[in-house]
Design a protein around this nucleic acid. Structure first.
Length: 826
RNA sequence: GCGGAUGUGGCGGAAUUGGUAGACGCGCGGGCUUCAGGUGCCCGUGUCCUUCGGGACGUGGAGGUUCGAGUCCUCUCAUCCGCACCA
């Protein structure tokens, strides 16, 4: 008996696909024979960050994407399925510093390995569109796009308190400093005052939030983005300090509680703190708070600290003078850096009031629950009736909300206002391995953009790219010193580089027109492919990458460069692959490499197992025993194909209807077509699709000997095996091609996706379920066309039902046509 | 604390619309094939009881709706993920 040898089969098919450039698609589809334009489909997996070699997460992502790409192609769509590399970034540079090897070298080596492995996995990629973000042909356009945003004022420079990682010696985006530590290296971040480049993403906060409703994305990802943008509706209210003659606006979501404001708090970073009081105590408090980034502040929640400034401000609703404090629970980044404190209706203000023995005045009374008159437990943040609020007493607080804001607006002491949690995107990095910012600093002209025809500003080769607190590029004197494009005087280049998230915010656009040397893309080409029909990647990008790419797309739409507002119509987030119940990591020593499995079992087995392990949006634990099971299945399919192959390839007819009576196997084949099609079309149910194909192959073995006894049976058996090959092709493209060719002599990817014959999906009889009081008691054969009365009669004839009756009486009969009969017996 | 998700055999999971719980795979048990070595074929496998006909129980837990609930409702427990002084 011959053996299934993926090591021989897989490279053979890969060569065919490479030689014939099978998966390339053109941007200008030829209308074949005047037929209507075929539907297009853009299937995209998030581009990999090339570091070392691909891991299991990559394999999972591309196994999912490739299955969908193949399925859509064979259903007649023109599918764009490209690949590229997110090549700039900190890890490559840190690795380079450790090993002394230039980041370009290690990155290029890694890209070569990724490319080699993707080919060895048999992924159907259009390699003619391959790109890498560190190539000048790519980042030339990253710089070009930066300049368009700069012209619009969407890229700007400002002095800001920024998060700084002392280990990586660079500033970080808000989003890259989670829980007060650097996302990359885990070092606690510190606060620094520096001039930095920002993108004005906050201008797009409303649209980024509102347009989420139009997206077919997982609900939890949309929720995360909504929370991150954090839109709150409320009012800005002005409190005046008469002694200094200064107005202090605050943002509040609860203007209805204004009468309950009994003190006022400034953030330590608020510029007026020392103006109000510059005693040594206040100075030291402010300095201590400034050294700590906001994330680490008050880590023991509830322990409120602060200092009274010995000043008062006037509450605009009742003229009350209330004391002013400085306290670190108020953040400078949010709102105005100052708050009105309402201890009766805000938990944090309540804690502060208790610690400093400040008055607590209830102004919203909780409705009395039926059954008791419990006093309102403070702090209370719900709705209720206004009390202690002058002429608003007795009103519902929601009504008073509007009335108070309108009144303040008339008095010019306030207005309706909306606040966001989202901050502008800090994009500059004091690092070497990134896209240079195409700006020149001129003493006379200020910030001068590098003219488009001088792009790209190439990243120079330097010897020492280790971070030193300023960009390593600053040491490349020849490169830094230049002339001003505006006045021709001496000038210096910007030495910061861009955050890599800028590179990946538009790569999906470049794929559409990847070889365009005149522009980042042609707009009509883009509109033919975009938006991405199906985007696939990990949840770890739910906020950062996906938010930035959406911002870029909207900004480019406003510039008229693209004709759509959202880049990714449909998103799928894959779950993580674990090993022995834990995330794979070098320190745990539980890392397994796709390469080992591909070499040992073949790419088809590894890919199929990845999809068979469970629902792809959930995490799953890798098991070597499970891989063996899938390998056995593929080997069985190959072996039966090998055994029954027509010696003269192509001579076999595989007419699905077959000749003579349809065998149970023929029916099973059509059932499998129907099942796999639905699982792939309507949901990402690869595991159950594969289970259906396994059932088909198992049945092929079961009926093989019977069917081989007659020529008609042999044809039906070949059809079933060819169908298994055809259906398995999106998951195991090499084996699918091999088996299909053994059966038919043709290439499976050139064949349309099979269609189930409805006549073979139904049969003349079915198994009627017979229940007594909802419990299964018997199954009887019933004609498919049986009427309800007939079903009931058949069920009554069951001996087991009679035994169950046992003197009881049937009080009710429920008949579900084509399914079951249930007798209610008492 | 707030928000989201998930709980089904020894294990991964299936059950798509309220209608046969456990598809398919792993593991385990048995048989066959002179079969030596990661890889063949077939059968069995939720738990307990059984006079071997079958019966009782069973989807984290407790209630409820229904002829019928893994699926719907209420409460509750556990695990995982995200956010977290956002005024």
């Amino acid at each position: 008996m011959r053996r299934y040898e993926p090591q021989e089969i897989e490279p053979r098919w890969q060569r065919v696909w490479a030689d014939e450039r099978t998966w390339e698609v053109s941007n200008a589809p030829e209308l074949d024979g005047g037929s209507s334009k075929p539907a297009t489909s853009y299937v995209l997996e998030m581009l990999p960050y090339p570091s070392g070699e691909p891991h299991m997460g990559h394999l999972k992502c591309y196994a999912i994407g490739d299955a969908l790409a193949h399925f859509r192609r064979r259903r007649g769509e023109r599918v764009l399925h490209p690949m590229g590399y997110d090549a700039f970034g900190l890890p490559a540079e840190n690795h380079a510093i450790r090993t002394g090897r230039h980041p370009r070298e290690s990155t290029d080596a890694s890209i070569a390995e990724f490319r080699r492995q993707f080919r060895s996995w048999g992924v159907s990629i259009d390699w003619s569109r391959e790109l890498a973000t560190h190539e000048p042909e790519y980042y030339r356009w990253t710089q070009w796009l930066f300049l368009r945003l700069f012209e619009q004022g969407l890229a700007y420079r400002r002095d800001a308190a920024v998060k700084w990682c002392p280990t990586d010696e660079t500033v970080l985006a808000n989003e890259q400093a989670k829980d007060g530590v650097c996302e990359r290296c885990g070092t606690p971040v510190v606060s620094k005052q520096l001039e930095q480049w920002f993108f004005r993403i906050t201008d797009y906060a409303d649209r980024l939030l509102d347009d989420l409703d139009s997206l077919d994305w997982p609900e939890h990802v949309k929720t995360m983005q909504r929370n991150w943008i954090g839109r709150s509706h409320g009012a800005e209210v002005v409190f005046r300090c008469e002694e200094l003659g200064t107005d202090y606006p605050v943002f509040t979501t609860r203007p209805d509680t204004l009468f309950g404001a009994t003190f006022f708090v400034l953030a330590p970073e608020h510029p007026d703190v020392l103006r109000l009081n510059d005693s040594p105590e206040v100075r030291s408090y402010v300095e201590r708070a400034a050294a700590e980034p906001s994330e680490q502040r008050g880590s023991e929640l509830g322990e409120k600290t602060g200092i009274a400034l010995g000043r008062t401000v006037t509450n605009p609703v009742n003229g009350e003078e209330i004391p002013v404090y400085v306290a670190d629970y108020v953040l400078m980044e949010y709102g105005t850096g100052a708050i009105m404190a309402v201890p009766a209706h805000d938990e944090r203000d309540h804690e502060f009031a208790q610690a400093f023995e400040l008055p607590i005045r209830e102004v919203v009374r909780a409705p009395i629950e039926e059954g008791g008159e419990s006093p309102t437990l403070l702090p209370y943040s719900g709705d209720g009736q206004m009390v202690n609020s002058g002429r608003f007493d007795g009103e519902h607080n929601r009504v008073a909300f509007d009335a108070i804001v309108d009144w303040l607006a008339d008095e010019d002491r306030g207005r309706r206002s909306v606040n966001f949690r989202l901050r502008d995107w800090l994009l500059s990095r004091q690092r070497y391995w990134g896209c240079p910012i195409p700006i020149v600093h001129c003493e006379r002209c200020g910030l001068v953009p590098v003219p488009d025809d001088q792009l790209p500003v190439e990243l120079p080769d330097i010897q020492d790219y280790a971070p030193k607190g300023r960009s390593p590029l600053a040491a490349a004197t020849d490169w830094v010193e230049t002339t001003c494009p505006s006045c021709d005087g001496p000038a210096r280049r910007e030495t910061d580089t861009m955050d890599t998230f800028v590179d990946s915010s538009w790569y999906f656009l470049r794929y559409c027109d990847a070889r365009n040397g005149e522009a980042p893309w042609g707009r009509e080409v883009l509109d033919g492919w975009m938006p991405v029909d199906q985007y696939i990647g990990g949840v770890e990008h739910a906020i950062l990458h996906l938010m930035y790419a959406r911002f870029f797309t909207k900004a480019l739409a406003d510039l008229g460069l693209v004709g759509f507002e959202e880049p990714f119509a449909r998103l799928f987030t894959q779950g993580m692959i674990t090993r022995e119940g834990a995330k794979m990591s070098k320190s745990r020593g539980n890392v397994i490499s796709p390469r080992d499995y591909v070499e040992r079992y073949g790419a088809d087995t590894t890919r199929c197992y990845m999809l068979y392990i469970g629902p792809p949006d959930q995490g799953a634990d890798w098991s070597d025993e499970g891989v063996g099971g899938i390998h056995r299945f593929l080997a069985r399919l190959w072996r039966i194909g090998d055994e029954i192959a027509e010696p003269e390839r192509g001579a076999a007819t595989i007419d699905g209807a077959g000749n003579g009576q349809p065998s149970p196997l023929l029916r099973k084949a059509h059932w499998a077509i129907d099942k796999v099609t639905a699982d792939l079309r309507d949901r990402f149910a690869f595991n159950t699709a594969l289970a259906a194909i396994i059932e088909l192959v198992n049945d092929a073995y079961r009926y093989k000997d019977d069917l081989l006894a007659s020529p008609e049976g042999t044809v039906q058996l070949r059809f079933a095996v060819a169908t298994a090959g055809s259906l398995v092709f999106p998951f195991a493209p090499h084996l699918g091609s091999e088996v299909y060719e053994l059966m038919t002599g043709t290439r499976v990817w050139e064949q349309p996706w099979p269609e189930a014959d409805p006549a073979l999906l139904s049969s003349e009889t079915f198994e009627l379920i017979v229940q007594v009081n909802g419990k299964l008691r018997d199954r009887v054969a019933a004609p498919a066309e049986a009427s309800e009365a007939e079903q009931e009669r058949l069920a009554l004839g069951s001996e087991r039902v009679a035994a169950q009756l046992n003197g009881g009486q049937i009080v009710k009969t429920v008949v579900v046509p084509g399914k079951l009969v249930n007798f209610v017996v008492r």
